[in-house]
């Protein structure tokens, strides 16, 4: 498992980071990570799945979405088109043969044979983050209404759960849905409850085994 860079094209051209388990093997899986808070909670699980796939003969690459993790770019300047283009560019750079989207990452999977693990609509992600913001404000003695927050998010962007979402990403998330076509891997095929539900990041070897096994069966020629 090594940190590598890949070139981001376009107006913000530069180098972005990825974590790769790359032994130049024929089966090469690009993983589009879960978004925001879920991305943190699922990071370790994602890497655990990569380790298992590596042992089973499948290379994996986990790029940062621009504006997240080690990216030089600001999150508030990102939008859905940039993220989709970025994942397309990463897929080309790494010569990926397949792609796995995790939760909100399923909204940005490029056009390759694709698997979607527990895909989620953009609106669901926003709903949870807006609710968290309202709960936190209430704890602090402030009353914020969903309607007013949504209007502000659409007009000028909004900080949700510590993530500064630009107005265009906010508006796009309201309507974005995972594409129809990729094979959907639901949580009941993995067993247990999804680790994105946990209040704190956690890991689960059985779940990582299960997801890796499903992917190996689907991908390996």
């Amino acid at each position: 498992m090594t940190p590598v860079t890949w070139p981001l094209p376009g107006e913000d051209a530069g180098a972005e980071m990825a974590l790769a388990c790359d032994a130049q093997r024929p089966a090469r899986l690009l993983i589009v990570p879960a978004l925001f808070d879920e991305g943190n909670r699922l990071r370790r699980f994602t890497v655990e799945v990569m380790r298992r796939l590596g042992r089973a003969g499948i290379d994996t690459m986990l790029p940062d979405l621009p504006g997240t993790n080690e990216s030089d770019l600001g999150l508030e300047a990102q939008n859905a088109v940039r993220w989709r283009d970025a994942m397309q560019a990463a897929a080309r750079h790494f010569a990926a043969t397949h792609v796995l989207g995790i939760r909100g990452g399923c909204l940005f999977t490029p056009g390759l044979p694709a698997y979607h693990y527990a895909p989620v609509k953009g609106a669901q992600i926003l709903r949870g983050m807006l609710r968290a913001r309202m709960l936190a404000s209430r704890e602090a003695g402030l009353a914020e209404e969903r309607e007013a927050l949504t209007a502000r998010g659409r007009a000028e962007g909004l900080v949700l759960a510590g993530y500064p979402l630009g107005a265009s990403l906010f508006r796009e998330l309201e309507d974005l849905e995972p594409q129809i076509g990729p094979s959907v891997i639901t949580q009941d095929r993995i067993g247990g409850s999804g680790l994105w539900l946990r209040a704190e990041p956690d890991e689960d070897a059985q779940q990582a085994d299960a997801l890796a096994a499903l992917l190996v069966e689907a991908i390996r020629p």
């Binding site: 949870g128 759960a161 946990r198 209040a199």
Partner: peptide
């Protein structure tokens, strides 16, 4: 909420959605 440190606003939001 307010008694368990790990149950922050984001976790409660997830709990309510669930």
């Amino acid at each position: 909420f307010g008694h368990l440190p790990e149950l922050d606003s984001m976790a409660v939001a997830g709990l309510l959605t669930e």
